[in-house]
């Protein structure tokens, strides 16, 4: 690793101020950033840990019923909140491994937007709102492709608000080495329709599968999408699976998620 300064502020305001320095970078749980630093693929002058900020921790319910998760909440905390939002808790409980879940944060995951990460599927699949230190961004505007988001330099994900669906489920088919999603599908049924978000599959990062959403909004059952096929153009092809295979898996996992949610 290149060396850097380290700060651990206790308020969002102090964190934002600390991130104003040139080449300063926010540190969530570090479960992706620290391995990246070890490879010397990043060279921040300063890391600003968000772990000490009390106002970014914890899970609560907003007046409109949305589940609000502090940006610095770790996956294990979300995984333990199945009474609040079972679909999201199930997803969080499958990220990485127990030690990773003890450190990794939802804010860090969404800020990084790894194309195979799980949380982006939940955020997009629920139409969540990503709250930062200076604005609220709806998920449909937030994800901008692999490792790209609407976040500005120095902007911190302080909270994520999930409208709680009537039914939801996340199905993840693990890449056997990294245990990230080879393909992951989050299905959420709301009063006004169904949302389907897919991670791991596309070269453009997390995306919504519009055809499946339309079919499922009309009939929320696995049969409704039995014959629906996703075009493999633009799907990731690598050592672990061809683009055709990934496209196929999206269909399988979507059906399974619907069956599990229904």
């Amino acid at each position: 690793m290149y060396n850097f300064d380290f700060e651990k502020p206790s308020t969002i305001a102090d964190a934002v101020a600390a991130l104003g320095d040139d080449e300063a970078q926010a540190l969530g749980g570090g479960q992706t950033l620290i391995p990246t630093l070890k490879q010397r693929l990043a060279s921040p002058s300063k890391l600003v840990s968000l772990k000490g900020i009390g106002e970014m921790q914890g899970i609560c319910i907003a007046d409109d019923g949305a589940v609000c998760i502090g940006g610095a909440s770790c996956h294990a905390d979300v995984a333990g909140s199945s009474d609040v939002f079972a679909g999201l808790a199930g997803l969080a409980g499958g990220i990485g491994d127990p030690a990773v879940r003890a450190r990794g944060t939802i804010g860090g995951s969404l800020a990084n937007n790894d194309p195979a990460a799980c949380y982006p599927a939940a955020a997009l699949g629920c139409g969540a709102t990503i709250i930062t230190n200076n604005r609220a961004i709806v998920a449909d505007d937030y994800f901008e492709g692999m490792f790209a988001t609407a976040l500005e330099e120095g902007e911190i994900v302080t909270e994520v608000r999930f409208p709680v669906p009537e039914a939801s489920n996340y199905q993840k088919f693990e890449q056997p080495a990294s245990r990230f999603a080879l393909v992951g599908v989050f299905v959420a049924k709301y009063a006004d329709g169904v949302r389907v978000a897919v991670t791991g599959a596309s070269e453009e990062g997390v995306f919504r599968w519009a055809e499946a959403e339309a079919a499922l909004s009309a009939n929320f059952s696995a049969e409704a999408i039995a014959d629906l096929k996703l075009d493999s153009d633009g799907m990731i092809a690598d050592l672990h699976g061809t683009s055709e295979y990934r496209a196929h898996l999206v269909g399988v996992l979507t059906r399974r998620a619907v069956a599990a949610a229904a």
Binding site: F6, K8, L27, G30, Q31, I34, P35, L47, S49, K51, A76, P98, A99, V100, A102, R103
Partner: peptide
């Protein structure tokens, strides 16, 4: 893996200062 404040974490993926 070690325990930090009672929770198992990967000590190679946590800064000493944290």
């Amino acid at each position: 893996v070690v325990h930090v404040d009672g929770v198992a974490v990967k000590s190679c993926t946590m800064l000493a200062m944290e």
